[in-house]
Design a protein around this nucleic acid. Structure first.
Lengths: 147, 147
DNA sequence: GTAGCACTTTACGTTAACGTAACCCTGGGC
DNA sequence: GCCCAGGGTTACGTTAACGTAAAGTGCTAC
């Protein structure tokens, strides 16, 4: 089929804007540009450049998202990098590297399990403290409704 | 009932040894004495003293346990102290303090929810990465069994 | 052309959470 | 008597993860 110009072209919407400036990304994830540059310096991101300016693709955005998620779960940037870099090196990785990666993954997984248990326990603690607090509060305001 | 001496006394086993030295506690939780002293300095523990030496009761042990659990979940010592101290001040706390405590608890709870979601997502990521790694590994060792 | 952003680099500052080193004290075993 | 393991204090060191300040670049609006 010979390429037709306008009709099909017009419909080819850029599904998702492909590139982001550092400020955009920063606003998206509620971090500062400094943080994003720092993550690059730590080897967690490797955006392209146009001149001096960093250009972030969607894969960079995803990487940042995963990084921040890891952080919320208490992983250090070094740990996160360890997984991310090995993931990138996977296609041409040798057997030893891959096995090492599997080990790391198992490790992270175990960590998640412990956290799940911790969360369950913490949840109960919170329940207890809350109900006690409500009791005391109720005894302080027997029938009155103050505000 | 008049107190009888030996029979019942003999059975009153010290269910749990009541006091601990700092080194014992440290070994129990896989931390250093330095860490425990630091937590005290930060207002998270307040052991008794016999002379200069710290004596920890079971309630201190529990507090340490809760503190370490909080840490594993990524809470700062300041956050942990905030809850722990308000919990202690509860009995004679006023309504405003109690309501503030409830706010904090709701906050922590929301935090836990986010972490649960993060864990679920992270779990899937790990699944994906692992299966990919296994695929590549399988393609590297087609039928042979190396070690 | 210049004002004003948004971006860049370099470099020093800061905070949390301990580690480490130096020194002292004390009770129990030999 | 001496030794030494375990406890104590004081104080400086360290690491991670950024914050902040200074100073330069480039484009767009007016």
């Amino acid at each position: 089929m010979p390429p037709r110009s306008s009709a099909s072209e017009t419909h080819r919407l850029p599904r998702q804007r492909r590139t982001y400036a550092i400020g955009e990304l920063a606003r998206m994830f509620q971090v500062t540009p400094r943080t994003i540059r720092f993550y690059e310096q730590e080897g967690l991101l490797a955006p392209e450049r146009r001149g001096q300016t960093r250009i972030y693709q969607d894969k960079d955005r995803v990487r940042l998202k995963l990084t921040l998620r890891g952080k919320r779960l208490g992983f250090s940037l070094a740990e996160i990098r360890e997984v991310v870099m090995m993931y990138d090196a996977m296609p041409d990785g040798n057997a030893r590297q891959l096995k090492r990666l599997l080990e790391i993954l198992a490790d992270k997984r175990a960590n998640l399990e412990r956290q799940l248990e911790d969360i369950r326990l913490m949840h109960r603690e919170l329940d207890d403290v809350e109900s006690q607090a409500r009791d005391v509060l109720a005894s302080l305001e027997p029938t009155s409704v103050e505000h």
